[in-house]
């Protein structure tokens, strides 16, 4: 498949030009073209949330997003959160509250959790649980993930 579409977008705060093919998902572009492997392939159909990224500030599944549709937009991946203060607190809480086991789903949860915290949900556990209903985890049983997010959300 020829890489015949040039797109330009902001990736993790910096401008980026990439040649992609029209069928390519943003997930494939991130992982294979750009080598950003923190965004995970879990299902490829928007059911698991392991590939959650921020598109113009909103969390979306990168597997359901055409790479070409990133043109002119702003994309943030887990790698782009290294110096984000809210994400830093979320990551620290995930570690301290035991919200990480195999960790495969964790980057997606962190992306989603960061936006939940920024939406000022407070420590309402039901609202947090609804907020992460699109992220599957097979290891933890979710309770510690909700604990971690609630701790950051209520500390705000």
């Amino acid at each position: 498949m020829p890489l015949d579409q040039e797109i330009e977008f902001t990736l993790n705060g910096g401008p980026r030009r990439v040649a992609v093919n029209p069928e390519m998902s943003a997930l494939t572009m991130l992982r294979e073209t750009l080598g950003l492997t923190g965004t995970k392939y879990g299902c490829g159909e928007g059911e698991c949330g392991a590939c959650t990224v921020l598109l113009d500030g909103r969390p979306v599944n990168a597997c359901l997003l055409f790479a070409v549709d990133c043109d002119g937009r702003e994309l943030v991946t887990i790698e782009g959160l290294a110096s984000d203060p809210v994400a830093g607190r979320v990551q620290q809480a995930f570690v301290e509250y035991g919200a990480v086991q195999c960790g495969f789903c964790t980057p997606g949860f962190v992306m989603q959790a960061k936006t939940l915290v920024e939406r000022h949900l407070g420590a309402d556990r039901n609202a947090i649980a609804r907020g992460i209903e699109g992220n599957l985890c097979r290891c933890t049983g979710y309770r510690k993930i909700i604990d971690a997010i609630a701790s950051v959300a209520s500390a705000k």
Binding site: K40, T77, E79, Q91, F94, V100, T106, P107, V110
Partner: peptide, 21 residues
């Protein structure tokens, strides 16, 4: 005690490289 997992910080920051990575 409640001891956080040693591999958790890398996993939470997307640095951990699973086989697909």
């Amino acid at each position: 005690k409640r001891i956080p997992k040693m591999d958790a910080p890398d996993k939470a920051s997307g640095k951990t490289r699973y086989i697909d990575d």
